[in-house]
Nucleic acid binder design. Structure first.
Lengths: 309, 309
DNA sequence: TTCATGCATAAGCTCTCTTGATGGGCGCAG
DNA sequence: CTGCGCCCATCAAGAGAGCTTATGCATGAA
């Protein structure tokens, strides 16, 4: 361990200001501290150096030769540090790494991030699918979008919304199957993602408490977008959020099986480490996504959604 | 006031060490602190930056892009500071500014400093006559040599010695005046520096309590070396220290008037500010001058000196 | 599984640092 | 020359930064 590394750093910062102003009081003002504190710090530094840095003359202080020799490198060092810190803060405020649940990333963020970038052109966005739950200790993520019940401990968690969903299928399949009039009719179709608890929630919302889905495990997709693709291809009926597939309904690529939508406790959450709650980029992103999701919900959520769970 | 100047400096020093070692524990060892403290400092820095600097992976830490971008300038800044501090310490230990009482400077230091420089060849000496008492707050002096009673408050004061003195005159004057047998005979000669209290001390030591010196104010020299020059020129009799004029006595340029030497409370003192008591150069100088003066006293002080005052 | 390694967390303490009040030296204006 | 204001030093007191010890957790190695 180098002993030479032991010297009072803050006193050096004070020294630099004092030397510039040739005044303890002025330096104190600049640094936001009292003249007393400045005096203390200079004295401290003088004692560790064993050398007087300023001669105290009646109404002024005069730097000694030692001080004048020290000043340039010290100034330069603090310039370097200032810039390094500034840049780190800048960099950190200029790129935002989002680790998002895959479906939300593909079907909402990918479509809507453009408006965030219009709003905050300084912030570069890096969007990643989170295949497993983001651990902010291990991944360089700034924020996460999670799809689930939440909130999660040790994180700042903000609910973006809970979104309505209903069974949807391709018009071709609907035609070939014939009219679907009662919920039970659905069970005759292949149920896509049958292990999702939301299917139970939905059947419950239409009065079927314990549907037998055991025969529908052939299409056990976990991710909603995979279910959706299967549905679009006419493989069966999938439980899809309006937030993501309202456009497909509108364009006729998908049709609602019964027109009975519901909403459960699963939602989309914005999460990030509490320690970074106040960084500019996170505040900006939080503000944007909150309002943008709300606006999109107003557009896509249908009427008469039943809340369950 | 620049807010950008507000960041934890010590944390940056820790950061630099951590980045070099890629380990909190190693960095802590180098810095002489615990791993816990290192962890604290890094966390602090991360929070002020709003950006993670190291990803904590199982048995290692990985610097983020931000950290890697920050490291080079930070390293360079600390190198600059290290060097500036080191140089300041060096400079400060390499030149010693002595503000000395004029006579001591001219008649002792000027003759003897050579042996100090042999002993400490690294230390450059700058010797100045102190026309008035040195104020270490205002003058860039490292140490002072004072001639007086001492000690003085708020200083480290070390008595170098109290030195014998006796009336001396030129052999020419002594011849022309004729034999001096009793102290009273001196009063018939011009007394040089008659206002010096030491004259009263000396007369007292030879039994004359209240000599009438009122007629001797024509040669009112304050400094001993001026009196000595006058005495050498045969202008009168001066009260001189053996320490300074033993060689003139030995060579016959001066003669002792009566051979009655005495010593009063006035002495030579080494003084310096307590805050710099432990700097290398001052310790070295103190050691040297203490022993050198003692050695010179052994050589020059006569036998049978009477202590007064 | 068990052990060793490396970082995080909690609680408490030390001591640095800051503040506010006060005082002294000196220049300047009246 | 006298009072006022500026500027720094000193002092006592208090807050809080920063360090330590003890402990826990996760992981990789044996």
């Amino acid at each position: 361990m180098k002993l030479s590394r032991k010297y009072p750093l803050n006193a050096l910062r004070v020294f630099e200001a004092v030397a510039r102003h040739a005044s303890f009081s002025r330096a104190g003002e600049e640094l936001g501290m009292t003249q007393t504190a400045v005096s203390y710090q200079i004295k401290l530094l003088e004692e560790t150096l064993g050398e007087r840095l300023f001669l105290r003359q009646p109404r002024q202080i005069v730097p000694t030769a030692v001080a004048e020799r020290m000043l340039p490198p010290v100034t330069k060092a603090f310039d370097l540090l200032d810039e390094a810190i500034g840049q780190a803060r800048q960099v950190s405020n200029r790129t935002l790494e989002i680790h998002s649940s895959p479906t939300f990333a593909a079907f909402w963020l990918a479509r809507n991030l453009g408006s965030f970038q219009l709003e905050c052109p300084d912030i570069a966005v890096r969007l990643l699918r989170a295949t497993k739950i983001t651990d902010f200790n291990r991944d360089p993520a700034d924020v996460g979008i999670r799809w689930g019940v939440g909130p999660w401990p040790d994180h700042d968690c903000h609910l973006l919304g809970r979104f309505s969903f209903e069974p949807m299928l391709s018009p071709a399949l609907a035609r070939s199957f014939g009219p679907i009039e009662r919920p039970e009719d659905l069970l005759k179709l292949p149920i896509l993602g049958a292990r999702q608890t939301s299917w139970l929630r939905w059947f419950a919302s239409v009065g079927i408490e314990a549907p037998d889905l055991s025969g529908h495990t052939r299409h056990d997709y976990v991710e909603q977008d995979l279910c959706a693709n299967a549905a679009l291809a006419g493989q069966g009926v999938a439980l899809l959020n309006h937030l993501f597939y309202a456009d497909d309904l509108a364009s006729g690529r998908l049709v609602a099986a019964l027109g009975r939508a519901c909403r459960d406790e699963i939602g989309a959450w914005l999460v990030f480490p509490p320690s970074r709650r106040n960084t500019a980029k996170i505040r900006a992103f939080r503000h944007w996504i909150t309002t943008a999701v709300a606006a999109d919900m107003a557009r896509t959520e249908p009427e008469g959604v039943m809340d369950v769970g």
